[in-house]
Amino acid sequence: MPRPERYDSAAAAVADIPDGSSILVAGFHAGVPWNLVQALYEQGATDLVMISTTVNRPLLDEDGRVTIADLVLAGRVRKVIASFTAAPHPSQPNAAEDVFRAGGAEAELVPQGTVAERIRAGGAGIPAFYTPAGVGSAYAEGREQREFDGRTYVLERGITADYAFVRAQRADEAGNLVYRRAARNFNPIMATAGRCTIAEIDDPILPAGSFDPDQVHTPGVYVARLVHIAEGRIEAPRRTRRSGRELDLDAPEDTGDAS
């Protein structure tokens, strides 16, 4: 079996990424490869094309985490492709939006299901496909549209990228990945669409053969680099919520086992 390269740190795993690279960044609240993005920020590559479901808000000055918005603010990004490129409400300004408005970086706003399908297509060797998302809105204007069986669809292109940053709970030495709960999200599809897929792993990496092959989410053949961050790992921000009502404590037991 091919073995991915093992790295001791996120910094080492991203050290050779050159200027001008395109990079897929997985995650949506959960499953975000925070450590790889942070290492990329510290590494210094510029003129980047960043593809993710959201550019997020800049968090560096807030809690030390680095988001794509922080890379945009640092002038390191040529273009973003995302389904959230701006503040959802004028009361919640996003400084990255000002950079886009001033022409400091290009933004391509894409419906979220279309982002996902473009990545799945790219990773599966499909150059283009038709989808209904966006029809009837300004998004579809200027895009090639075609009717199938009486419905209108928009032509979309598959996406591949130089690198994919993914995060998994568990991996074995063969690079097989297992995700946990909604931390799966974009990770499996982005892992297939990166020419060099780099995976940050929460748990210590297991010997090959540790997983039942039926239970592997991303086969190791898609994974070029593995890094388990043993100490000082950056985790997802935890959001506190005001409870809407007294909640039923009789919730089903959730052990957290991925398989």
Partner: peptide, 11 residues
């Protein structure tokens, strides 16, 4: 049309 938070609404 490049700035917004379309999320999954159009899909």
């Amino acid at each position: 049309t490049d700035l917004g938070g379309v999320g999954g609404a159009m899909d």
